[in-house]
Simulated scan of single mutants.
Amino acid sequence: MSPHKAPDSSRRSDRSRRAIYDAALALVGETGYARTTIEGIAARAGVGKQTIYRWWPSKAAVLMEAFLDLAARQAEEAAGAGEGGDGGHGIPDTGDLAADLKCVLRATVDELNDPVTEAPTRALAAEGIVDPVLGAQFVERLLDPSMQLYVTRLRAAQEAGDLRADIDPRIALELLIAPLTHRWLLRTLPLTHAYADTIVDYTLGGLSATP
């Protein structure tokens, strides 16, 4: 008889983590963040709540990690499919700054409107306002990496002479991102590709009438 093979605990842990990720994202989408509980996530994932508490200190931490995992998988799928946007590798640099920014802002519009990611993104953004620790993690792990992509592209445009040398790229990128975020958070008007294109045109062209 062949010797008994011990279960692979790492594979079991990976399966449990994936089930917990999926359960957390699904429940937030179905019932909202406030009604999502550790007990509910555990029941949905088919694990004991002690398992979740052993790996994470709170439901916010579970959701943060689940969302980061989802974002990484979506970036890999987009890169493998050769889709537009930054694909997780940077903003395109075709030499046409306006076209490149419109491309990535349109991709951002699609992400913000995606029902799979909208609920967890809203939940993390809202909870980060009242939880400074989570808010700092949200900025550091989710926002700053994508913001740095804009800074890199805008600095390249400065070096190419397409933008003024004296602008601060960090402030410039906020002119692009803030309007999208404002409209998305408040749900004031539809978030569309046309709106994204207009933001780029207004930002690069300025609002003052030229002589």
Rank of each mutant, 00 (worst) to 15 (best):
P3T: 08
R15A: 02
R17Y: 07
R18A: 15
A19M: 02
A19G: 03
D22W: 05
A23V: 02
A24P: 00
L25G: 00
V28Y: 01
T31H: 13
I38P: 00
G46Y: 12
V47S: 03
G48C: 07
Q50K: 10
T51I: 04
R54Y: 14
W55K: 03
P57S: 13
A61K: 02
E65H: 13
F67N: 00
E76Y: 06
E77N: 05
E77T: 12
E77H: 11
A81H: 06
G85V: 04
G87C: 09
G88K: 03
H89M: 11
D93K: 08
T94P: 02
G95L: 12
D96E: 15
A98M: 05
D100S: 10
K102Q: 15
V104K: 00
R106A: 07
R106P: 00
V109T: 01
L112H: 06
D114V: 04
D114Y: 07
V116R: 12
T117N: 06
T117A: 13
R122E: 04
R122M: 09
R122Q: 07
A123F: 02
E127A: 14
E127H: 08
V130R: 14
V130C: 04
D131E: 09
L134W: 05
A136R: 13
Q137V: 04
R141L: 15
L142S: 06
L143Y: 13
L143V: 14
P145F: 12
P145C: 09
M147P: 00
M147R: 14
L149Q: 13
V151D: 10
V151N: 07
V151S: 09
T152E: 15
R153L: 08
R153G: 01
R155E: 15
A156K: 02
Q158P: 00
L163T: 02
R164N: 10
R164W: 10
A165K: 04
A165S: 15
I167C: 02
I171N: 09
L173H: 02
L173R: 01
E174F: 13
I177W: 11
I177P: 00
L180Y: 05
T181N: 13
R183Q: 12
R183V: 12
W184A: 03
L186H: 10
R187K: 11
T192V: 10
H193E: 10
H193A: 15
D197V: 04
D197T: 06
I199R: 00
V200L: 08
V200A: 03
T203I: 09
G205H: 10
G206N: 09
L207Q: 14
S208P: 03
P211F: 11
